[in-house]
Write a protein that binds this DNA or RNA. Structure first.
Lengths: 209, 209, 209, 209
DNA sequence: CCTTAATCGAGACGGTACGTCGTGTCTTTAT
DNA sequence: ATAAAGACACGACGTACCGTCTCGATTAAGG
């Protein structure tokens, strides 16, 4: 939250905001407040009243921009995503690369941001529109680096080109996601990641050799 | 509430049930009503008031048995599960067996009961107690038949004994579950099942041969 | 309550009021509804739910203005009081004047409004705040005309000035009130009024002569 | 509360009542419990559940004997009344006698028992049956001594026989009662008693002389 | 520069559902 | 047969949040 965003809210003689926010600045403040609420209380406990209060605005202003709690939350989630491009690991060894990628995915899913993501996916079980938004935002993000490390392994002659098939390339990621969808909030232990890589991922990509 | 405010209950023209339900019979009626509400309106739209009305009882009676909407719903879900033992397919061909099992799982997950299951898992993101209940109820159910068909294939010499490793045996099921957790409410098309079996499951179990 | 449980209000086929009531207009509507309920069902059977329904609003709105059923009822009672100034009888004869005043008081106490008053006084036995409100609103109202007719009688030389002492001037009224507090709901018969005037009031005010 | 009334209520391993009470003993225990609740929490906060618990019995047993909370409370109130015959003051002076009687009435009305009485009268505004019960029990009690002191004053030649008229004889008592019905819970200050006697009672009974 | 239309902030409004409490009735078990 | 225990069906409580609305204050833009 930027410092000028809210002047002494709650003080008896309110000094009156320096200037009334509009447009983009206001929108950012609302999304920021929503993001904070999402992290602190979770999606299912997020209320429009609290978001409005935290952002120093009114529900009216929020509903003018987003039609529902769900839409607002998805919009706020987008702001939470890291924007820096991720560098794909390149150790020269497929197993190390895969473990690195899987660990990174695990870190993200177990981070506050990941927790929010899972809550959103859950909370929008019956809102296909929002689900699509989230899926399109998130899903593709993870596939590319796997294709990269597989391509390098193919180049090294380690595995066959068949491993680039989407179902094969994403198998580790999908199994990890599945762990979360079953286990709920807690982080997946590293042991499981090793199992996924050694018992499923590596045997599979090497099968076609 | 001041006590002189009390209304006389039961003076209306109630049909007056033959005899007042109690204990198990009443419990069954409540779970039945809950199950119907779950199928008709979904978990997130289920209200205690409606369940009570539908069951012809009062919220009081419900809260005496289950501490929350979540607990009630999980209990009702249990009643919805089919109780007949499932016969494991045995076609003499591992691929056919796997497809049959996966199709059956898909049918279940896309059925009303499956829909309810997914809603429950979603709605209890932050209620580890209920999650555990569901997981324990549901998860193990699906693994056994996979071990069976794999054992037969091993006996036939089709695949290696390594395929009995839990992560390997459940890989198809887990990938299917993952499809649902991503795609949401809609059923997974048969094409995907075939892909999972042919691109992942079969190559993997045959890898150790 | 988990927040994903939220229902959409207003989707039904509401008639949709021309314009939404606010402030004074709304307040009047609520007090009107309360007054009607008080007369129809009595204070002890008055419920916030019914008042809200009758006024076409929600309990929320009522509780925002009045902290309790008691406070609401007292406020409604105020609206029920006649606002027109009462003309003091002046027959030239103290006995006739007194009987006229006492009859009027009896009529008021036995009217629906009077019944409500008595219910309120009863129902707020242990709410000193509300009692004070009622007392201040109601008690003084009745004393003035008695002082007037007594003053006239003094001017006529009928009685002594000592009759203006508060305890003396209000004795008839207080005895009438006492009849109600003992007898409960029913009206006090005219015979009693005559007795009070002839056996107590007149002898007393004439005593000092 | 008699000692054998309740054995270790609330202790983990209930020792089981020595013997199960029946008939009169049970009835007394219930009325005793009711009386205690009336004094402690007041009529409007008295609940059947608590009475049953306190008496170590069940609501069923209570309802078999008394049809309602009101009837039970009135019955319990009767048990609270002092049974010893009251001695009428005889100072040889009507004013002293009257003040003594009025003070005694004031003490009773402001005592816990008096408080209960007023609550009952209030709470049964619309239960004529119970009101009658209370009135018949209580009202006559107070009149006799007033007739006694007035008779003695007549014998002394202090006042005229007309003072024995019921309305006259009870005027002080009724005015005191009225004070309570207006002021509510608080005790009436002694000043008021003196005023009633000196400004109303004495002038009135002496008027006919 | 001054009007004018739009938007903001604040909060009231009409609803639905919550989880709790007390009523008076009913059922069961044990004395 | 009745006591004790407690479940049952009902209605009301007071609170929370929804999504809509009204209202005055502020702000940007156009004549």
């Amino acid at each position: 939250m930027t410092a000028d965003q809210r002047s002494g809210a709650g003080t008896g003689a309110r000094p009156a905001k320096a200037t009334r926010r509009r447009g983009a600045a206001l929108e950012r403040a609302i999304l920021q407040a929503t993001a904070e609420e999402l992290v602190e209380t979770g999606y299912s406990n997020l209320t429009m009243d609290r978001v409005a209060a935290r952002a120093g605005t009114s529900k009216n202003v929020i509903y003018r921009r987003w039609p529902s709690r769900a839409a607002l939350s998805v919009a706020a989630y987008r702001q939470m995503l890291p924007t820096d491009p991720e560098d794909t690991p390149d150790t020269g060894d497929l197993r190390s690369d895969a473990l690195a990628l899987l660990n990174r995915a695990n870190d993200r899913l177990s981070s506050p941001v990941g927790k929010v993501l899972r809550q959103l996916l859950s909370g929008m079980q019956d809102d296909p529109e929002r689900r699509r938004e989230i899926r399109e935002e998130v899903a593709p993000a993870g596939v590319a680096p796997w294709l990269t490390i597989l391509s390098r392994a193919i180049a090294r002659g380690e595995i066959d080109v068949a491993a680039l098939a989407p179902r094969v390339a994403t198998v580790a990621l999908n199994l990890l996601r599945n762990e979360y969808s079953i286990s709920g909030a807690t982080a997946v232990p590293p042991t499981v990641l090793v199992e996924i890589v050694d018992q499923v991922f590596l045997p599979l990509v090497r099968a076609g050799r």
